[in-house]
Design a protein around this nucleic acid. Sequence first.
DNA 1: TGACGTCAAGATCCG
DNA 2: CGGATCTTGACGTCA
Length: 419
Amino acid sequence: MNIGYACLTLGVPNADFRSCTQKNASEEKLVELIAHNLNALETVIDYNIKNQIKLFRISSDLIPFGSSPVNKLPWWDLFETQFGVIGQKIKSAGLRVSMHPGQYTVLNSPDENVVERAIADLNYHVRILDALGTDASNKIILHIGGVYQNKTLAMERFENNYSGLNDGIKRRLVIENDDRSYWISEVLELGEHLQIPVVFDNLHHFLNHGALELDEAYWIGECFKTWKAWDGRQKIHYSQQEPLKRAGSHSQTIRADDFFFFCNRIKSKDLDIMLEVKDKNLSAVKCLNLLAEKKEIKALELEWSRYKYSVLEHSPAEYNEIRRLLRDKSNYPALEFYGILESALKKECKVGTAINAAHHIWGYFRDKATETEKNSFLKCAEECRQGTASIAKLKRFLEKMTEKYKEPYLLNSYYFILD
DNA sequence: TGACGTCAAGATCCG
DNA sequence: CGGATCTTGACGTCA
């Protein structure tokens, strides 16, 4: 069982991707952006290896305008060496990567220009995974596409257009149910007929399924049959609804109890689970800890060191509750730990407790800060108390201090990336 | 014609 | 002028 996350990595310096608008996409600009993004990708891969995250979706934005005539660069040649280096890291660490063209890549469109661009986009994604030297188990995930008032015809068009694809695409392509058009049963129909592995997405299934009242375990079992040996381990997508938002909106974080019970419900341990969630790698680490075979409280203590100041600013009571919980070193109370954590972070952040947490952070700099820095901090804290400055401003100041003095404990903290 | 989703770039505002 | 905040861009489908 591997857990992965998609595209962006939070709280890691130099892991950001850059882009530009079409009108600014000169050759020089593109070379600069690609060089930057490949460095970022390497940083992210290093982070994933270090944190034992073995599944990762590479952003389609890695190469700006990668499948558009706007970008005429032979980037796979120009950056061959670095692709090789990153690919080697992926391979030797046993990482599995994937890519997922967005909702605008539509293979079954009645418009042949749209189909042509979709194929160009798939070839672009193949080129990245090939440049990295990854094998056929490193997949490209695609939805079936539109319905155009006639689903039977639309599915036939998918079959026809799929049949015409080159083997480079075919060996990597997998298909997924979506949240408005294609049910898992229909995707399976196509997958079985065309010999394409099928990815089950739990939230899409919840929002868009046929009359058949069969549970998730059943459909995951059916999808399993579409994965052949060289496709690698069966993959599913897992996400949760963000409360109070549009149906289908991904949650801020993966709620530990729901995830844990989902895993128990579906039973299969021979699955790769790709999380789709706003807090990205934070939830990946959480889910890994929830399912950890080697249950060592050290892992929770490490997590606590990352979350503690966020918990403190939201809820001092739960801060103390977690401290008590982690006191017994013979236990591994992961579910309870994350449960309290989530409950705390959901609470509204009061100005008083936020300033209190900021003072805790300030404690790391009290002895080394300059007089100017000290005055700035105290002034900003006072303005927060009076309501004339925002807590966000106070936190940004502390973040700068953290970067300047490279305080290791704070550099790994989530305090600056959680609101 | 605009909503949908997503993110950073680009533009503009503010002190 | 730097930093914060708002708007735009890029894509195809569907109402």
